[in-house]
């Protein structure tokens, strides 16, 4: 009987002592976490896409509150959430141009020439490693959908082995940009009026043999642009979206009809 009581008392005493020590420790070692972090986190999209450069939405929220990142660090955020975060932080949200991803290639299966037929794994990365892909053009969208898989917002679809981005669904997180083995997905301003959907660096004659919708770098668009917004760089036309006014002359003049209006 005595030993039971000793056991109960001893164990109870140890428990009590540990309880008291832990509760004191909890007070002494208390770390003040900023309640703002939780509030900011609630307004972030929660997709953990990593487009901000941090490990996820919670890491981004922490960085915003600590001032290590600006309030509009999140590339995928919508306007109202952004203004709520700005008001939590007590600052004005800077107006930034919303970006969207765009696949800079129009070479679907019926317009491009194929090097070989491939029946293996459907992965752009692997096919790109196999003699630079199955399309003749080394800058063509391979169309096996690595970007479709990585997109957390279901914004990319494949049509006839050509990926295209739904710009209203796109959150411009940049995941597709980094996953594309061809580096042909670019972030362009949401309100871009015209863009060239080709990134081929091949010369005109070579390009014609590979793809019927490839930019041949003729420069007609550049010569006709009243704002001088177009330049031919690496044998394809590049539009400076800052200067472009969307007059549409280039769309009309392009012999290949590959300059698209948004």
């Amino acid at each position: 009987m005595n030993s039971i009581i000793t056991a109960i008392v001893a164990f109870g005493a140890i428990g009590l002592a540990i309880g008291i020590i832990l509760s004191i420790a909890a007070k002494v070692f208390e770390v003040n976490t900023d309640p703002k972090i939780g509030e900011v986190l609630d307004n972030l999209p929660g997709a953990n896409c990593g487009g901000c450069g941090f490990a996820g939405c919670s890491a981004c929220a922490e960085a915003i509150v600590k001032g290590e990142a600006s309030v509009n660090a999140c590339p995928s955020i919508d306007e109202s959430s952004l203004s709520r975060i700005a008001s939590i932080m007590g600052t004005e949200a800077e107006k930034t141009r919303k970006l969207v991803a765009c696949v800079m290639c129009s070479g679907s299966n019926d317009v491009t020439v194929k090097k070989y037929e491939f029946d293996g794994t459907k992965s752009c990365l692997e096919i790109n490693a196999l003699n630079n892909g199955d399309k003749m053009c080394n800058f063509a969208c391979l169309g096996y959908g690595d970007c479709v898989e990585v997109c957390k917002f279901d914004a990319i679809t494949l049509h006839n082995t050509l990926a295209s981005v739904d710009k209203d669904k796109c959150a411009s997180c940049g995941m597709c940009v980094s996953v594309c083995p061809r580096n042909i997905i670019k972030l362009i301003p949401y309100d871009s009026k015209v863009y060239v959907r080709c990134s081929s660096e091949d010369k005109g004659a070579a390009m014609k043999a590979k793809c019927s919708v490839g930019c041949i770098g003729c420069g007609i668009c550049a010569k006709n642009c009243p704002e001088e917004a177009i330049m031919v760089i690496d044998n394809h036309a590049v539009i400076n979206q800052e200067k472009c006014v969307g007059c549409g002359i280039c769309v009309e003049k392009c012999p290949k009809k590959i300059i698209e209006t948004a």
């Binding site: 140890i14 540990i18 020590i21 909890a26 070692f29 208390e30 770390v31």
Partner: peptide, 16 residues
């Protein structure tokens, strides 16, 4: 019991 409490304590101290 002691190990569990110790880990708790160490965790709090480390965080601080």
């Amino acid at each position: 019991f002691v190990i569990a409490a110790l880990v708790q304590f160490v965790e709090m101290a480390l965080q601080r």
